[in-house]
């Protein structure tokens, strides 16, 4: 507990007017805790960390934390982060997004950031709904579920964010839940240390909107659902496909070494300066 208090004093902004905007019982605080613990363990200086967000519940996260913080436009966080990282590669740039932010309005930016393999970490809080605007369906709302804009049930099919990131070329992809807090700590740390584009998808609950509309209970029941439906990559390897039908994987889904954009661009600079022809 003492350790925890120390982290709060070190990383939360003293001059920011708390309380925060999130609902009681929200999992976003667990995600923020994991993020801070991972940063503390690695030992980044606060001055070298840039925390970038888009719009939505997750978008409000950077304001509370004592880093260089940037709250951008909806879906565009990765584009701003790209500019920061390329202009000042020494900075550790972490992007926090929600599911609507990252794969609806920002979906194109997401796949291209992954494809470029820019050294950024994208943390995506996936709660299957647009929470801040009042519970509309998102690209990760499962088929057949209700939201305030699918009161007759959702007839669209959900994106699998982590699988999308793997296919788009991210160097590291991990998925956790806010229930499996220890695992999340580890995934964040691995993602931050990875050279290249790293993604951590955080499965979370929105009991206020999504849970209420679909009668899934409160935060406790929704956390229990995460416990009962998440299977680690290691356990899944020992399970039959039919046992996995209503489950989802957590853990490290991809970890590969690919040419990193900033390093490659530095080579371009050296070639350009050496007068090596454009056609050389």
């Amino acid at each position: 507990m003492e350790e925890f208090t120390k982290l709060i004093h070190k990383y939360l902004r003293h001059d920011k007017k708390f309380p925060h905007v999130w609902c009681p019982g929200c999992g976003i605080g667990i995600m923020l805790g994991a993020l801070i613990r991972a940063i503390d363990r690695i030992g980044y200086e606060k001055d070298e960390v840039v925390l970038v967000s888009g719009i939505g519940c997750s978008g409000r996260l950077p304001v509370y934390v004592d880093f260089n913080t940037l709250h951008t436009t909806h879906g565009r966080a990765l584009t701003f982060a790209t500019g920061i990282k390329l202009a000042k590669p020494g900075l550790k740039v972490i992007v926090v997004m929600g599911d609507g932010d990252a794969v609806a309005i920002g979906g194109n930016h997401f796949i291209h950031a992954a494809r470029r393999n820019i050294d950024l970490t994208a943390i995506i809080l996936n709660n299957s709904v647009y929470g801040m605007t009042g519970g509309q369906y998102s690209p990760t709302t499962p088929f057949g579920m209700r939201s305030t804009t699918t009161m007759y049930t959702n007839i669209e099919h959900a994106f699998k964010i982590s699988e999308l990131a793997v296919t788009a070329g991210a160097a590291f992809v991990g998925r956790g839940t806010v229930y499996h807090a220890k695992l999340l700590d580890g995934l964040m740390e691995k993602a931050f240390l990875k050279q290249g584009f790293s993604v951590v998808e955080v499965i979370a609950h929105c009991h206020t909107q999504y849970g209420k509309l679909n009668r899934l209970g409160g935060p406790v029941e929704m956390l229990q659902w995460q416990r009962d439906h998440a299977v680690t990559v290691e356990s899944a390897a020992r399970m039959k496909p039919e046992e996995m039908e209503d489950k989802f994987l957590i853990g490290v889904l991809a970890d590969r070494d690919l040419p990193v954009y900033t390093e490659q661009y530095e080579r371009i600079r050296q070639r350009a300066k050496a007068g090596q022809g454009k056609d050389a």
């Binding site: 701003f80 920061i84 990282k85 000042k88 194109n108 291209h112």
Partner: peptide, 21 residues
Amino acid sequence: IQMEDEIASLGAVIGASLTGT
């Protein structure tokens, strides 16, 4: 950098400018 669209382009420009560039 050639971005994926013009929205991203100005986003990257603003990000870079925030670093003093």
